[in-house]
């Protein structure tokens, strides 16, 4: 226990140090003329530019636009993924019927559908949400499916011995037993939804972090572009951490969770 805590602290310290190290190295490499700032800017310039963009409100505008699409796409993916996953996990026929679509999703890049969505929904928010929805859907669906499908047979049998009906077993055994796996799927879905939003924004949007990245990228304004890249990274880490925390809350009863 203490050794574990010590190790976790040590890992935290080392991780922080290596992060700081990279930032310092980045600054020094540019300051000494080793790397041309045109390609990569510097931490101090990015920080200053962040303050500027923060004050003129463009950070808020872009983050709000990205989060708006993120929330919608993740929300839709969660509802559709969990409902379909539950049905497919419980009824083998539904799983078999959905399987080809999952193969497509795994083997074909989702962005390939982008032009199609543009044709249907036009440039902008609806298309971005649709692409990010597809990004996030797979892990949420797949995890829900495997959680329900791998319901502990001993528990199901014990329930049956007390006269449980199939619906009882689904609601009282399969579903609560799947919550941790479903949460893990949602955590993966969060990262993918954010990726989906930013990627779709790169192609066509009026606001958002992905939009800001391409916009300044095309103008060759590296520092301004780096601000949005850093925000995307921080946002991704933050959102995933929130989900990891929620996940740890739901699986405290799991004996095999090594915490």
């Amino acid at each position: 226990m203490i050794a574990e805590l010590f190790y976790r602290r040590q890992a935290l310290v080392l991780g922080t140090l290596s992060m700081i190290g990279i930032v310092v190295f980045w600054q020094i490499a540019v300051d000494t003329g080793f790397i041309n700032p045109f390609f990569i800017s510097t931490p101090s310039q990015v920080a200053a530019e962040f303050m500027a963009q923060f004050e003129d409100g463009s950070v808020a505008t872009n983050v709000a636009a990205t989060l708006y699409c993120f929330v919608w796409s993740l929300g839709l993916a969660a509802v559709v993924g969990i409902v379909l996953g539950m049905l497919a996990g419980w009824f083998a026929d539904v799983e078999a019927a959905l399987e080809p679509f999952i193969w497509f999703k795994y083997s074909a890049p989702t962005v390939a559908f982008y032009p199609l969505f543009v044709a249907w929904l036009g440039y902008g928010t609806p298309t971005i949400i649709a692409i990010a929805f597809l990004f996030a859907l797979t892990p949420i669906y797949a995890n829900t499916l495997s959680g329900i499908k791998n319901t502990d047979r001993d528990l199901a049998r014990a329930a049956r011995s007390f006269g449980a009906r199939p619906l009882d077993i689904f609601l009282r055994v399969a579903l609560p037993g799947s919550v941790p796996v479903m949460m893990a799927g949602l955590r993966l879905g969060v990262g993918r939804a954010l990726t989906g939003v930013v990627v779709a924004e790169l192609f066509g949007a009026n606001a958002g972090l992905g939009y800001a990245i391409t916009y300044y990228g095309q103008l060759m304004q590296t520092t301004k572009m780096m601000v949005s890249i850093v925000i995307v990274v921080v946002l991704g880490v933050l959102l995933t951490q929130i989900l990891s925390f929620l996940e740890s809350k739901t699986d405290s009863w799991r004996v095999d969770s090594n915490r």
């Binding site: 001993d154 049998r157 014990a158 009282r172 609560p176 037993g177 919550v179 009863w253 799991r254 004996v255």
Partner: peptide, 9 residues
């Protein structure tokens, strides 16, 4: 039953 037929949650 033998062990482990309790609902862990």
């Amino acid at each position: 039953f033998q062990e482990a037929s309790l609902l862990p949650w």
